[in-house]
Amino acid sequence: MAAVTVLEAVRGALAEAMERDERVLVLGEDVEAGGVFRATDGLAKRFPGRVIDTPLAESSIIGVSIGLAHYGMRPVAEIQFADFIHAGFDQLCSEASRWCYRTCGDAWLPMVVRTPWGGGVHGGQHHSQSIEAYYGHMPGIKVVVPSFPADYRSLLLAAIDDPNPVLFLEHKRTYRLIRQELEGAPAETVIGRSRIVRRGDDVTVIAWGLMLHESLAAAEQLAAEGIGCTVVDLLSVQPLDRETICEAAKATGKVLIVHEDTLTGGFGAEIAATIAEHAFEFLDAPIRRLCGPDVPAMPYHHAMEAFFMPDRERIAAAVRELAAY
């Protein structure tokens, strides 16, 4: 079997889910024509009536999905860019996340909201955003952030099968950049687990999305220099796999958290706090965060974009500093 891209893994999982369960529907802007990233390419023809174009209105997409899910369908909504999801924040935060809680389980919502996030495509301030910190702060919604095609496939299928709202974040820069042979590749099927993808003795790096791949590239480079990295693919923001995070932190005693999102209040803060609370005695250095700078959004020009985003060189530099601490 040939290696597949992230995008092909997503598209394949959607088709697989629609094939095996006729309650599964896809809705969003431009999805009938295949979507702006082509994630739904060919689905409208293959599953007539089950791929539904919506008006350009994110609150509608999420609010209607809530209704569909409550009724017993399994909607998979696409928000064209994560940056635009906030118009539906109310529907996610005030409604979807509390549906089960506020009825004591009398009602629940098997729904998925997929959306491309992250920078690196010259998308400027409104096509580059990281949103995991906003939505990871909301018990009642699961937030999934895969990095490898095999996990994209298995976790999207798990998200569609889940009886709860799942926000499924797809890093847009990796859509066509990252390929993987699915057969034999590790594929997480349970939402809420992280995975240690590389083991080394000196420094633990925790990342997700494009930054996970940059971290692995840095780890490869550092190995040649004699610095060993343990690398954690976070996979899920909510629920957070505190056990695996702490196990990885204890393995080296030195932790670097890398994310594209801005530093203050970014999800790295929650991870750092978790390690500080539960693995303090094992630490040999302060927990470090390598993140976007505290400016409102990622700027457009490629020079400023590159400045904003951490990369393998900066990750390697941060690891060297920690290793030497």
């Binding site: 609010g63 809530i66 209704g67 569909l68």
Partner: peptide, 16 residues
């Protein structure tokens, strides 16, 4: 907010 939920339920009923 409930008015959008209503539209979604109606769409589900239509499909079924």
């Amino acid at each position: 907010t409930q008015l959008l939920h209503a539209a979604g339920i109606a769409l589900g009923a239509r499909l079924r």
